[in-house]
Nucleic acid binder design. Sequence first.
DNA 1: ATCGAAAAGTGGTCAGACCACTACTGTTTA
DNA 2: TAAACAGTAGTGGTCTGACCACTTTTCGAT
Lengths: 221, 221
Amino acid sequence: MQTTKPSSKMFLDIVEELKLMINAEGITVGDKLPSERVLAERLQVGRSTIREALRSLELLGLIETRRGEGTFLADFKKHQLVEVLSTFIMQQPNSAVDVKKTRVIHEKAAIEEICNDPVKRELPVWQSLIMIINDEGTVLREDIMREMIIATDNRLSLKIWFLLKQYSRVPYGEMTNENENGMLIALLENMISGHVVEAIVSYDRWIEVIEGEMNDDSRVV
Amino acid sequence: MQTTKPSSKMFLDIVEELKLMINAEGITVGDKLPSERVLAERLQVGRSTIREALRSLELLGLIETRRGEGTFLADFKKHQLVEVLSTFIMQQPNSAVDVKKTRVIHEKAAIEEICNDPVKRELPVWQSLIMIINDEGTVLREDIMREMIIATDNRLSLKIWFLLKQYSRVPYGEMTNENENGMLIALLENMISGHVVEAIVSYDRWIEVIEGEMNDDSRVV
DNA sequence: ATCGAAAAGTGGTCAGACCACTACTGTTTA
DNA sequence: TAAACAGTAGTGGTCTGACCACTTTTCGAT
């Protein structure tokens, strides 16, 4: 049974065994894994060792445990890759600048992808956003960017962006004001028209404005 | 002591407590953490619960344990995290696509940033790469992209890219062959000259080629 | 002062015992 | 017959105490 030589870290071997078992038995997303006691019996180790391996995988979001029910292979949507990254990446010096740059990378990439894809350009959500801005005079800032990232249909990028947004000092949680609405309309319309360069320019202007505003605020504080 | 309400997942609370403790006591990379028995005493939980939390952090590469010595805050150069996650994540149909798209986003962003920054364009590393390709006829694929990301001076993007690279099926771990060297030279020279569009085109061609080659390989297998 | 053996400290693992919760099963009841 | 109920088996969650293997420290003999 023991195909892999036991290392000094038994629980790591268990993780490997579990991966093999999942593949061998065709366990897929949502399926139930054998119970801890069964696994301990089958792999000939103590239950606590099994638990250490399972808890590791749970922290990564690879499995999901429900008391009284069992342990289940988790859906990718629940994978904690990004969250995990954040815990040990974010609190480094210089990270504020990096976080902003990286957030912008993802936002611009979304804008460009939409501009270059007729189908995504014609999504009704853009017209809706324009109407909301015109009718109500304001909209939640982050709603706009989020819709753009969502439109790219890239869950991973969305997750990364969401996390970066939280760590950013950018005031996305606020409503837009008169000054920026024009730029946003320009951004949206350029995007709808597929004018990449102009859309990016509008975006840059908008970011510049709301970050300038943020700096004014922080000066007061 | 218990500032956070106990959830149904005690070991997750312990992970949080540990993070707080690490920050509060100024424990930095390489420092020793309190022993498992001390932690159990201090947090008023069983040692097995402490261990489940520690094992989770160990699987992430956040801590390092040495039998007989203790538990230490690790430098996260250990990305065993990736090996674990990748096998689980890659089973999901769409995630592979997302990973690739996101990796490309970061790579193109790096190319564009270098193109638009005279200082970064004139870094000696690009000439070195061109010389290596010309003289030795080959170079490690990932070296090129890594140097580009490094040049952007964005550690966060570099870390994300590094992880994505390992998740990707792109054969970056191999040496370049005759076919692609021309495209790489074109990419580098366009970049040095600041020709954004042309550089991106060269990049797209290169990626297309090495991914095509990869598909051929898998067909053989 | 040096060397070496004993002791203390630490992570690694196991077994067994409860607890809290869920799901199943069989009986009772309307 | 069908619904409601209670009991039971199964599951994850946690704790305790006991070893083991290993490293560091301590301290006595030389």
